[in-house]
Amino acid sequence: MAEDDAVYVNTGSQQQAAGGSKVTAERVAVVVLLAAAVIAFGYTRYEYHQTTKHLQKLTDEYAAMRKNITAEACRKCQIGWERNGPQCYYFSTDQLTWEQAREKCQQIGGALVKIESEDEQSFLMQTLRHKMTEKEDRFWIGLTDSVTEGTWLWPDGTPLNKSLTFWRKGEPDNWTEVNNTQYVDGEDCVRMGEKCESGLKWWFDEPCTAPHKCICEKSAEIDA
């Protein structure tokens, strides 16, 4: 009977050990599942956060775009001025020296035009073609090298961007005699206007004291 009891006891121990292993495995499985759930939840929260940030960025960009479109649509020019993008242009038919033209533009709230893009040059050319009364009708722009020969400056003092110029072939040539008239200072100011010319090359240097028409420029006003 003692041996039988021993066998019985051993069998019970084995069953207990087997039951313990099963419980331990279940606990491990639960822990793993919980860990996976925590990781998945964290990843989901991260994705949600990133998506929310991206959505907010898109919303801000859309609002800024609408604001710009609305502001652009509300821009206007005064009577007598012509608009191109955010700028207004006034084409004066008064025959003035370059200095007088600059003063005139300042008096009406603008400045002699500063050309900063091919689009702007193209707009001015196309507009002038309809305003020119002669084959060669000359309009001052705001470019001069009267301070230092060869250093071309705009009315606000900024230098000419040499990669963005529209000189006619052979210009600037700084002649000291034009139409049998002597100019001691040469040609230190710039005008445009040559109806028969094609392309964008419409700039000519000219004596600053010559009488020409002019182009004034100022920013378009936003209608409140």
Rank of each mutant, 00 (worst) to 15 (best):
V113Q: 05
V31E: 03
K57G: 06
V32S: 02
I69F: 06
I215H: 00
A64I: 12
K213R: 11
L164Y: 08
T176L: 15
N179S: 09
N68S: 11
V113S: 11
I108G: 00
E120S: 07
E136D: 14
K162T: 12
Q95N: 13
W140L: 07
C216G: 00
D60G: 09
V32W: 01
W175S: 15
P155V: 15
P172V: 06
E72S: 13
I108R: 02
A64L: 14
S198E: 03
V190E: 13
I222Q: 10
I79K: 04
C77E: 03
S122R: 07
Y8E: 12
F91N: 05
H49Q: 15
T181M: 10
M125V: 05
Q15P: 00
Q121K: 03
R102N: 03
P211F: 02
T127G: 02
R138P: 12
N161P: 03
Q15F: 10
G110N: 04
I115P: 09
K135T: 15
D173P: 04
C74Y: 10
A210Q: 14
M192G: 00
L200P: 02
I108F: 00
S117L: 06
A220Q: 13
A2F: 12
K76G: 01
W152L: 02
W202C: 09
T181G: 01
K135E: 14
L112E: 04
E217L: 00
D145I: 02
E136T: 15
C88K: 06
K169S: 05
L58P: 02
E72M: 10
N68V: 08
E134N: 11
A17M: 05
A73L: 03
T158R: 15
A2G: 14
Y89V: 03
A40T: 09
Q106T: 03
T144L: 00
S163Q: 12
G170W: 11
E221L: 11
C196P: 12
S163C: 03
W202E: 14
C105F: 10
E177S: 14
A40S: 10
E187N: 07
A36S: 00
P159N: 12
C196R: 10
W152C: 04
M125R: 09
Y8G: 07
L112W: 07
I215K: 05
G80P: 00
Q50D: 10
S13T: 04
E116W: 13
D5Y: 15
T97L: 02
P211N: 01
W140D: 06
R45P: 04
I39T: 05
A220E: 10
Y62M: 13
L112Y: 03
H212E: 07
A111K: 08
G170K: 06
D5H: 12
N84Q: 08
L124D: 04
I69P: 08
K53T: 04
G12H: 00
E194L: 14
E120R: 03
T24Q: 04
G110V: 06
A36H: 00
A25E: 10
L143H: 07
K131L: 13
